[in-house]
Nucleic acid binder design. Structure first.
Length: 975
DNA sequence: ATGATGACTTGGTTCGAAAGCC
DNA sequence: GGCTTTCGAACCAAGTCATCAT
């Protein structure tokens, strides 16, 4: 097919993709949203610069959000985790918990709000832009400055855009997002029109490109304001203020500069009022060389600039470009040299992709075989027949008392393998493929433009993927519809392609109904059918679900190949809706031991490759077509390979504990460094340490726009000298992994605050906050500080250490079991909050809470009643006989039991409510040294299955075996 | 030196099964 | 025994980071 065709159609038909499915989802009428989108387009041209920061719809309500939450948001997180002494009366604790809870409520609030404010896009916009201004600058002068810059830029933007417009036209489709916002509670991420986001990204890049120009302006302005200090600087590069500028800027001679300055500064009427910083300054007198607290902001800046003059200290993004630019001076426009780094990357990536595809076509694989260190010797291992008891004191466990003899491989008592070798022997049966497609029965029809159309099998299958998702939010998203339709058309035969040109005219309702019916049928299967199915599945698991590795049978994590379907990217993923192809044996690389029995490919098929690489842990892999990523079949978390790695991870974290004080000292000192790069690194590390932020790798254009620490942009933080009685507050608001919002108001050290101001100075919202930093630099530095240290170790470390501290603090020896478990959950929760592990409020949470509360009320009545009875019985017992006394005792016991039950219920209710937006699982599984929990259980006599379910116990078997009641995360036993 | 890629970990959602409830 | 609620496993997307290739 010719791609042009479909792309063009995509434009017209999918701009309005939300109404694509014959109104099944109840979309608004087309004209309306068409209008909106065109309106938006115009608007965008006008406000392009501002717009790009506003792709997130939620922002409109953010202001309100914040106001409302002002009081709620606490700095509970910020109570210094660095100091180990957690003090607080239980009341305080309760308050804190309350606050924590509230901190997380923002999600619901936001969602609710966004759904209520959903309709009026235009209004939204106004909000947003006004908000943008407010939030962008801490002072009105800054605001002015910002505005002026923007005006200036807009002018240039527009000119350029006009030029480009014709070029871009076909790429950009209208960006009205679904006019009927079907926000659901679970919709945690900010809904935003993805196409606009696409654009926003482009804009951002362009902006980065153009920033250069702006910097020239700013540079000049600065010169005007601070003529004195600048004198010496003029011949030097000004790195800190003009991040992206290259030689051009520096070469300028002074007179030229000054002449221009006069003009430009008027035009932009920038008002760099740094002086107010001085006024507020309370001096730190620590007598460093560069004490920024002692100097005015600009003075200070100059110093930094001066000192920071090495090439080393050029912003990363500009380093490359300036290098490249050496002989290409005609800058300005779209020649390759001027493409932002990211864009260039993309081009390269595409090339690579092509190359890969070509290679794939060649069938033969020329992959260089890696060196194999293969010894077929089997290790001696301490084997143990262990009874794995399923029985647990929980109610759940009571019913089913299965005893299973399982061989437990105590690998943790073995010697470790030589470096890099993961196994000596590996044998498995290969993956299980997705079942073949079953065509729809003839009565299930698809209609196009009101007419029945019999689709070819291929097209029908893909249509089915869409039909299945008809009642899902995804199908209201433009990007999803566009991607789906594009890929769907690729699967059509000629006639279909000719006929089906508009998704809006497609009616999948019948298909959808059929699938629903099918699902219903499956649910209502008879017992026998279910049993048969189960048995079949078990047989499959038995055959394919395990492998033999170094003489032991181990479970495989995911032995099934992912079935075809539509890609469900999270957040505003630009590729959502693309077709995830069916994976065949020909796509799969098998990895196993040389002497092992090589798995057989399905009949008529052959593997892409069979290799014997014992330096990796995967058994099979394939490259998925949507993102071109390699997917793997690997072992279950209970396996040695995974467990050992896990163990090692926590050991590294513990090692960090021994060194962390020094590292902290170190980075605090670096806040004063003369080198910009080092300062940025130090501040970033501070965030990683204090807030457990993720490292924040750079991302490609074709992924959702999310960030981590190193990739934070100016727009993601807001500085407030004072907020809610706290000084130097940094407000983080960004989308992190999985497009989950991170919102946190953090009081920071003054020095950090000032540094941030410096980093943000002269930058636009879309610019990198840490422009001289990326994760490689950070990790390189960390590794120098401690072997094996990376950014994520801090997350593990702080999570585990928090758990240890919280458990120490919250647990009382004399508490009841339920209370102890509540304490544990609270400790766990503290970690989840630290790591920002959120979840959607479970369906029916409200309802189940109500029920519980009713129950509690009933129980209370019972208790009251019991109390009365006890009283009466007591009276009778006083002068009564033995019988009455026995009766009294009985009543007393009953009352006790009732009270107990009541307490338990109350605990349950608190626990559940505190937990409603917090996901505990992730931290438990990935961040908390299991030995802490195990030791806690052993120490306080809590059955381990109260804390870990069966799978978790399997995964953490090493820890359960290893840790005694005295294990402590912070103490490493010397051997 | 740097970007690309492969390998592996982390993370939330979904769905079916088990437990609880009436 | 049937319905509802809860829980765990499966799923697969999306991170991190080291290593490879250029």
């Amino acid at each position: 097919m010719d791609g042009d065709n479909s792309a063009g159609e995509g434009d017209s038909s999918l701009a309005n993709g939300s109404s694509a499915v014959n109104g099944l989802n109840g979309y608004s009428d087309n004209s309306k949203s068409d209008h909106k989108s065109s309106h938006r387009d115009k608007d965008r041209d006008k406000h392009r610069d501002k717009d790009k920061h506003k792709s997130k719809d939620h922002k409109s309500s953010r202001d309100k959000d914040r106001e409302r939450e002002k009081d709620k948001h606490s700095s509970s997180k910020d109570k210094d985790r660095h100091s180990s002494s957690h003090k607080s009366s239980s009341k305080d604790k309760d308050k804190e918990r309350e606050k924590d809870k509230d901190r997380h409520r923002h999600r619901d609030d936001k969602d609710k709000k966004s759904s209520s404010s959903s309709s009026s896009k235009d209004k939204d916009k106004e909000h947003r832009s006004s908000k943008e201004h407010k939030s962008s600058s801490s002072s009105s002068k800054d605001k002015e400055r910002e505005k002026d810059k923007e005006r200036e830029k807009e002018k240039r933007d527009k000119e350029r855009r006009d030029k480009e417009k014709s070029k871009d036209k076909d790429k950009k489709h209208s960006s009205s997002s679904s006019s009927k916002d079907k926000h659901r509670d679970k919709d945690r991420h900010h809904s935003s029109s993805s196409s606009s986001k696409d654009k926003d990204r482009k804009d951002r890049d362009k902006d980065r490109k153009e920033k250069k120009d702006d910097e020239v302006v700013k540079h000049k302005v600065e010169e005007e304001i601070k003529p004195l200090e600048m004198k010496q600087e003029d011949t030097q590069r000004d790195h800190s203020s003009s991040d992206d500028d290259d030689d051009k800027l520096v070469i300028k001679d002074e007179s030229q500069d000054e002449a221009e300055t006069n003009n430009m500064s008027q035009a932009s009427s920038c008002d760099y009022n740094y002086s107010h910083f001085d006024k507020n300054e309370t001096n730190f007198s620590e007598g460093e060389d560069v004490d920024m607290e002692n100097t005015s902001q600009d003075n200070f800046k100059e110093e930094v600039k001066e000192e920071v003059d090495s090439d080393e200290d050029v912003p990363l993004s500009s380093r490359v470009s300036s290098k490249r630019k050496i002989d290409d001076d005609d800058d300005e426009d779209d020649d390759d040299e001027d493409v932002p780094l990211n864009a260039r990357k993309k081009v390269k990536k595409e090339k690579k992709k092509k190359r890969r595809e070509e290679e794939d076509d060649e069938e033969e694989d020329f992959k260089p075989k890696k060196k194999k260190v293969k010894k077929e010797k089997k290790d001696k291992k301490p084997l143990q027949q262990v009874k794995k008891e399923e029985a647990s004191p929980t109610k759940r466990g009571k019913k089913k008392k299965v005893e299973e003899e399982v061989e437990v491989w105590k690998w943790w008592e073995e010697e470790k393998k030589e470096d890099g070798v993961k196994w000596n022997f590996l044998e498995h049966k290969g993956p299980v493929f997705a079942p073949a497609y079953e065509p729809l029965p003839s009565h299930v029809k698809f209609y196009y433009d009101g007419k029945e159309v019999k689709l070819s099998e291929e097209a029908e299958e893909v249509a089915g993927f869409y039909a299945k998702m008809l009642d899902h939010d995804y199908t209201t998203k433009d990007a999803f519809n566009k991607n789906f339709f594009h890929d769907w058309r690729e699967c059509m035969n000629k006639e279909e392609k000719k006929l089906i040109t508009d998704l809006k005219k497609c009616n999948f309702k019948k298909m959808h109904a059929y699938f629903m019916e099918l699902a219903e049928k499956n649910r209502n299967k008879t017992k026998e059918e279910k049993v048969a199915l189960k048995e079949k599945n078990e047989a499959l698991v038995k055959e394919y679900g395990t492998c033999v590795i170094d003489g032991h049978k181990e479970k495989i994590g995911n032995f099934r190949i992912e079935p075809p379907g539509l890609f469900r990217g999270r957040g505003e993923h630009p590729k959502m809706g693309k077709l995830k192809r069916r994976v065949e044996a020909e796509d799969i690389i098998i990895n196993c031991a040389k002497g092992s029995k090589i798995p057989e490919a399905p009949e008529g098929h052959r593997w892409k490759e069979v290799r014997h690489d014992n330096k990796v842990t995967w058994l099979a892999s394939w490259t998925e077509n949507v993102q071109n990523q390699v997917k793997y079949i690997m072992l279950n978390p209970s396996s040695k390979l995974k467990g050992e790695k896990d163990w090692q991870k926590y050991e590294t974290a513990r090692k960090l504990h021994q060194k962390v004080d020094k590292i902290r000292e170190n980075y605090q000192a670096d806040w004063k460094s003369k080198e910009m790069k080092i300062r940025q690194r130090a501040v970033a590390l501070y965030f990683i340490d204090k807030l457990a932020l993720r490292a924040g790798n750079e991302k490609d254009e074709d992924q959702a726009d999310t960030v981590g620490c190193c990739s934070l942009r100016v727009e993601h933080i807001e500085l407030q000298e004072e907020k809610d009685g706290k000084d130097y507050v940094v407000i983080f608001d960004f989308l992190g992994k999985d497009s989950i919002r991170y919102y946190n108001e953090v009081p920071v050290e003054k020095r950090v605050f000032k540094n941030l101001q410096l980093f943000m100075d002269n930058k636009k919202k879309g610019d990198d906050l840490f422009d001289r930093l990326n994760t490689q630099i950070m990790n390189k530095h960390l590794n120098d500080l401690m072997e094996g240290l990376t950014a994520k170790v801090f997350r593990t470390y702080n999570a585990s250490w928090t758990l240890q501290q919280q458990l120490d603090e919250l647990t009382n020896e004399d508490d009841s079991l339920a209370e102890k478990i509540l304490s544990y959950n609270r400790a766990n929760r503290a970690v989840a909050i630290l790591c920002n592990h959120q979840r959607a409020v479970p369906k029916g949470h409200e309802k189940s809470m109500e029920k519980l509360k009713e129950k509690i009320d009933a129980k209370r009545d019972q208790v009251k009643d019991g109390e009365r009875q006890v009283k009466d019985a007591q009276k009778e017992a006083k002068h009564g006989s033995v019988k009455e006394k026995v009766n009294y005792d009985k009543k007393k016991k009953m009352l006790e039991r009732l009270r107990d039950q009541l307490a338990r219920l109350e605990i349950q209710v608190t626990d559940r409510d505190e937990n409603k937006t917090i996901a505990l699982g992730t931290s438990k599984l990935n961040y908390l040294d299991p030995r802490i929990s195990v030791a806690w259980c052993k120490k306080y006599d809590v059955p381990i299955e109260k804390v870990y379910n069966k799978t978790q116990r399997d995964k953490f078997r090493w820890a359960i075996d290893m840790a005694g009641p005295d294990y402590r995360f912070d103490l490493i036993k010397k051997k």
